[in-house]
Simulated scan of single mutants.
Amino acid sequence: MMTNLFSTFDPSTSLNLSLNWMSTFLGLIMMPAIFWFIPSRYTVLWNKITLTLHTEFKILLGTPKMNGSTLIFISLFSMILFNNFLGLFPYIFTSTSHLSLTLTLALPLWVSFMIFGWVKNTIHMLAHLVPQGTPPVLMPFMVCIETISNIIRPGTLAVRLAANMIAGHLLMTLLGNTGSSLSLLMVNLLIIVQLALLVLESAVSIIQSYVFAVLTTLYSSEVN
């Protein structure tokens, strides 16, 4: 029920939501793209990161035929990094700490590399099973070892990322739950420790996404 004439302009009177404030930003859609031509500092920083990753992945791949494939690994790095950092915020689900996501990323990539390698470069893949300089007596054992190490690669990729992400979060949760039973001095010390762990988790988020992308790039370079 309208209490006065001006209540019709109150955004909370429409379905008890304030979403009609979004109409203020609809004008941004009408702006031509030339207004967004000048890059922001965030765009410049992200472009530098992308170019650096492109250079490193290009060196790891080693073949000039696969220039565009670095974009796949840069996109993979960006997705994992975004999800890792989202998990650092309170009450936000950390999807990269579960094998259902990490194995979904690692397994299709590994299967596609194996299919491509065994179909296109069969001799090259067979040569990888026996390292150069292996004595003839040890060749059957080396084939078994290399085959097993090759099969467990997607599992190690997935477990490495999930375990590293869940370990820090679990430690922070366990320390945080003890705060109510500590004295004031210990609570202050606990806050300092939690801040240090948060900085460490931020570094782990970057490192693990980089390690996942680099290892995937190395695995792809072995099938060429």
Rank of each mutant, 00 (worst) to 15 (best):
I148W: 09
M139P: 01
N67Q: 11
L86M: 08
F116D: 10
P154N: 08
G27K: 10
V211R: 03
L126Q: 02
I206P: 09
N188C: 08
H54P: 07
V143S: 05
M186C: 06
N224L: 12
V193C: 14
T55E: 14
L218N: 03
V119H: 07
F6T: 13
W110T: 03
K58H: 07
E56L: 12
A162L: 02
P39T: 08
L53T: 05
C144W: 00
T24S: 15
F73Q: 14
I29K: 14
L182V: 03
K48F: 10
T156W: 03
A203N: 12
G176V: 06
K58M: 08
T24N: 15
T178F: 11
E222M: 09
L15T: 04
S78P: 04
F57R: 02
L101S: 04
I80D: 05
N4F: 11
L215H: 05
F6W: 10
A106Y: 06
N16Y: 15
I166G: 04
T216D: 03
T24W: 15
L198H: 13
A106H: 08
F57W: 11
V204A: 10
Y42A: 13
G62L: 06
L71Y: 09
I123H: 08
S23H: 11
L76K: 08
F212Y: 06
T94S: 11
N177H: 01
N188Y: 10
L126D: 01
L86P: 00
L107S: 05
H98E: 14
T147P: 02
S69D: 11
L184F: 12
L218I: 13
N224Y: 10
L51C: 10
S97D: 09
F212D: 06
S180W: 10
T134F: 00
S112H: 12
A203W: 14
G68A: 02
A213W: 09
L161Q: 00
T178P: 00
T63R: 13
I191H: 05
S221P: 01
L53Y: 02
A158N: 03
T3G: 03
M142T: 01
N177I: 09
M22A: 15
S149E: 13
T63F: 11
H169A: 15
L138S: 01
A213L: 01
L126F: 03
P135A: 08
V130H: 08
